[in-house]
C-alpha cells in the first residue's frame, strides 16, 4: 500500500465530497470476474462490446475498402505513367531540335518514300 501524499487541509476539505463514494460489492465482483476471465485467456472488452459476427463484418468491410483504395491508386498511377510514356514518345518523334535551334522535320515515313519514288518516275523534277 502506498503512502498518502502530503496533505493540504484546504484541498482535502474541497475534495472530501468525492471521497465517500465506494463501489458496491456487486461492482467489485463484476471487476473480479472480468479480471479472472482475462487472466484465464480471454475477457469481454467493455469499451467495444461488439459481437464476434459484427467484428467479422467490420473486418470484411475494412479489407474491402483497403483493396478498393489500393486498386484505385494503382489504376491512377498506372494511367499517369502510361500517359507520360506516350507523351515522351511523341516528344522524341516530333520535337527533336537541331543545333541551330530549328525543329527538325519528322523522319520520313514509308508513304513519303513511296511518294518520292513516284515523283522521280514521273519525270525527275515532278513536272
Amino acid at each position: 500500500m502506498t503512502k498518502k501524499r502530503e496533505t493540504d487541509p484546504e484541498l482535502e476539505q474541497l475534495l472530501r465530497a468525492y471521497r465517500d463514494v465506494q463501489p458496491t460489492s456487486d461492482e467489485k465482483e463484476k471487476w473480479r470476474a472480468a479480471i479472472a476471465q482475462e487472466v484465464r485467456g480471454s475477457a469481454p472488452i467493455v469499451a467495444s462490446a461488439a459481437s464476434p459476427r459484427s467484428n467479422l463484418y467490420r473486418l470484411v468491410v475494412r479489407t474491402a475498402i483497403q483493396v478498393g483504395v489500393a486498386a484505385s491508386l494503382g489504376f491512377v498511377i498506372g494511367a499517369y505513367f502510361t500517359e507520360r510514356r506516350s507523351e515522351q514518345g511523341q516528344a522524341m518523334l516530333f520535337s527533336q531540335t537541331e543545333p541551330n535551334g530549328m525543329t527538325s522535320r519528322p523522319p520520313a515515313t514509308m508513304d513519303d518514300e513511296r511518294e518520292t519514288v513516284r515523283v522521280n518516275l514521273d519525270g525527275g523534277d515532278g513536272r
Binding site: I35, V39, A43
Partner: peptide, 16 residues
C-alpha cells in the same frame, strides 16, 4: 463502473 473494469483489464493485459 465499466471504465474501471476496462482499466483493470488493460492492466492485466499489460501484465500478461
Amino acid at each position: 463502473s465499466d471504465g474501471v473494469q476496462e482499466t483493470l483489464l488493460r492492466l492485466v493485459r499489460l501484465a500478461k
